[in-house]
């Protein structure tokens, strides 16, 4: 079985989403599950940016902030329905990514990393400081999306945490499907080509700036959608959603699992989301361990966790 195989990946993912709840001892785990899916969604977008196109962003949580605050602010200030607000948030994120991406993506490596980090922090600062609009550092309420009631109306009656587990799971499946479509498509090939050799990509006619921008914009939309999901589920947002640690966590999840593959990155999202839950008794050591894991994986498993583990399992035939 090849991991790049689209249907295999989707099948594995669907099976995991559908079957894991069998082992849930309490409904709390549904909540952890939906958190994994939300991170997984953002990270799937990062796979397009990092894994396909070979670009980095340390500021994508900024787009999540825009997605989340759109859901909170648009309904209150302009009477826009919450779900429409999420869509508008994604459009705003895309536009912003388009505007910012044009100059930023001319940069490479560390410079690109720091520029995007700066962008994310600016968004975070705006959300924190413009309290008249955003409610400031204490955060703000998000109106009920009515999604769960709608599900009830068609006969699907679930507890809140369960509902969001399944809803986020479905959104993740859609996100993964789109990202996998892209991988094998002409666009995906152009992105991977410019990742492999930018100069060669240019000489075969790839408009490198345009394709990098496409990857940046689409990954921003993924991040924005993830932010919206957090807002919809919690019915509350704080500026922390746009914090740079989130951006860094997403990059780490992406590379941890194996930046080239959607499934690997979602796997990485799973591990890093579970880690703090497992370590609650060592809450004090959480940062220490997170940092240690980031370093160890990058030093000893350069391809990421999943590809390295798979190679170990397959053994000699690789």
């Amino acid at each position: 079985m090849r991991l790049s195989n689209k249907s295999a990946t989707l099948l594995v993912l669907a099976a995991l989403i559908a079957l894991t709840p069998i082992f849930f001892p309490s409904s709390f785990y549904y909540r952890v599950g939906s958190l994994i899916f939300i991170n997984g969604l953002a990270v799937t977008g990062m796979v397009i940016l990092i894994g396909y196109a070979g670009q980095i962003s340390l500021g994508h949580a900024g787009f999540a902030g825009i997605g989340a605050y759109s859901c909170a602010l648009m309904p209150v200030h302009w009477g826009i329905p919450v779900l429409l607000a999420a869509v508008l948030g994604a459009i705003i994120s895309a536009l912003l990514a388009f505007l910012v991406g044009r100059p930023i993506l001319r940069l490479k490596g560390y410079y690109l990393g720091v520029a995007t980090l700066g962008f994310g922090i600016l968004v975070y600062m705006a959300l924190t400081n413009e309290a008249w609009l955003t409610g400031g550092p204490d955060g703000t309420q998000v109106p009920d999306s009515g999604l769960r009631d709608a599900a009830k109306a068609i006969g699907i009656n679930l507890k809140n945490s369960e509902f969001w587990y399944w809803f986020c799971g479905v959104v993740l499946m859609i996100g993964a499907w789109l990202a996998l479509n892209l991988y094998v498509s002409p666009t995906g090939r152009a992105l991977r080509a410019l990742h492999g050799s930018e100069i060669a990509a240019r000489t075969v006619g790839v408009d490198v700036a345009r394709y990098k921008l496409q990857a940046f914009v689409i990954s921003a939309v993924y991040a924005s959608a993830a932010g919206s999901l957090v807002a919809l589920q919690n019915q509350f947002v704080t500026p922390d959603i746009a914090g740079y640690m989130h951006s860094i966590e997403w990059v780490t999840m992406t590379v941890l699992g194996g930046a080239g593959s959607v499934l690997g990155a979602i796997f990485g999202a799973g591990i890093l989301t579970l880690l703090p839950q497992v370590l609650t008794m060592f809450a004090e050591y959480e940062q220490l361990l997170l940092g240690l894991i980031m370093m160890l994986v990058m030093i000893f498993m350069r391809d990421g966790l999943l590809p390295s583990v798979l190679r170990l399992i397959r053994g000699k035939d690789e």
Binding site: N181, S185, T187, G188
Partner: peptide, 14 residues
């Protein structure tokens, strides 16, 4: 590339 490139949306939705 120049022959096979086309709409991004078409690629995204396969």
């Amino acid at each position: 590339h120049l022959q096979e490139t086309g709409s991004f949306m078409a690629d995204l939705f396969s």
